[in-house]
């Protein structure tokens, strides 16, 4: 749909649904599906395909993403675009196979060695998985960098109605591609090695200038009933769906609760969060982890407001009623204070 020409995968639960779908779909679209011998090989096949100038992707789940991080760093260091999907499961180590959001730090901070970012999108519905894959390919090409969809086992395995957009054909020209110069230009090199410290410095600095523009232009978040909210819940992905249910429960009982759901995790929607929490009294961050995004939320409000955390990890999914309980507790506290 997004003009993706190749998919390189390796089986791991709970993302096998994506591989199975691509194995069926790609040959019909004249594309390539290849099951690699390892996550490492798969991501390096993506590196090769990206360098060749085609739209390419891979998907995996948490332990597999750790293996891919080598390749992701090289892809970022070679300024190549691609899309990587992480259907998160519980960790560390082999962890579990149930839904989790424990890879937020990895996705936004540590997807490989070196000074770099990847674009990170957090879908919260099956429809958004589709829409954000397209967005991720477009932005990855525009900024010549990897883009990740940070999903979880819940989104990876659930079924919901989806509308597929028109097949897209306008993939931009890639004059930098190593696809054979045909005698028409000097040779292109896709490379992340710069042995002179000065060269490497300026290369990385240029990349960070690009990130500055990205941080201006691309942050995206959905806000829900935040206008008059005293308590604002922040959550992404599946946790945001649970939080949304909890916000509805709170509203029903007359508690002014709202939700901010970051859609981009890098760039993090700091400004949106700051603005929409201006009149709020407390913030509650809900995650399926021990609390990772909560740090970015605190930075966004510059620690000027209390940011509480509620989460479950290991594959346990917080229930709307539990989150509602947390909201009620906060309401009780701030109700007394005002």
């Amino acid at each position: 749909m997004a003009g993706c020409k190749s998919f390189f995968g390796y089986p791991i639960t709970p993302q096998t649904e994506i591989s199975a779908y691509m194995a069926k779909r790609m040959p019909k679209e004249g594309g390539v599906f290849l099951q690699a011998e390892s996550e490492i090989a798969a991501v390096n096949m993506v590196l090769g395909a990206a360098a060749a100038g085609v739209r390419t992707m891979t998907s995996s789940s948490s332990p597999g993403i750790s293996l891919k991080s080598e390749g992701i760093s090289y892809i970022a260091g070679s300024d190549l675009p691609c899309v990587i999907i992480n259907v998160q499961r519980g960790g560390p180590g082999l962890g579990g196979i149930q839904p989790s959001q424990a890879d937020y730090w990895q996705a936004t901070r540590a997807l490989g060695h070196g000074d770099f970012h990847v674009l990170v999108y957090a879908p919260a519905s099956v429809q958004e998985m589709v829409d954000l894959v397209i967005e991720a390919f477009d932005r990855a090409d525009e900024y010549r960098m990897p883009a990740m969809l940070l999903a979880d086992g819940m989104l990876g395995q659930m079924m919901e109605p989806v509308t597929f957009p028109e097949v897209k054909k306008n993939v931009p020209d890639k004059p930098w591609a190593t696809n054979g110069h045909q005698g028409k230009r000097d040779h292109n090199v896709a490379n992340s090695l710069f042995l002179s410290p000065g060269d490497l410095h300026s290369k990385v600095v240029r990349r960070f200038e690009k990130y500055k523009e990205i941080e201006q232009k691309l942050p995206k978040a959905e806000t829900y009933k935040t206008e008059d909210a005293d308590i604002i819940v922040t959550a992404y992905g599946a946790a945001a769906r649970i939080a949304r249910s909890a916000v509805n429960m709170a509203r029903k009982e007359g508690i002014k609760a709202g939700l901010i759901r970051p859609v981009t995790l890098y760039p993090f929607p700091k400004e949106i969060i700051r603005k929409h929490t201006e009149n709020a009294k407390e913030i509650l961050c809900v995650e399926m982890s021990m609390g990772q995004m909560v740090e970015d939320v605190r930075l966004s409000v510059e620690c000027k407001k209390p940011v509480r955390f509620y989460g479950k990890t290991g594959g346990l999914i917080p229930e709307p009623a539990e989150v509602f309980e947390q909201i009620k507790r906060i309401e009780k506290r701030i109700g007394g204070a005002y």
């Binding site: 819940m154 659930m158 919901e160 599946a238 769906r241 649970i242 949304r244 249910s245 509805n248 999914i317 229930e319 709307p320 009623a321």
Partner: peptide, 9 residues
């Protein structure tokens, strides 16, 4: 629109 797709009750 469906919030949490996980049915606990």
């Amino acid at each position: 629109p469906i919030g949490s797709p996980l049915v606990t009750k």
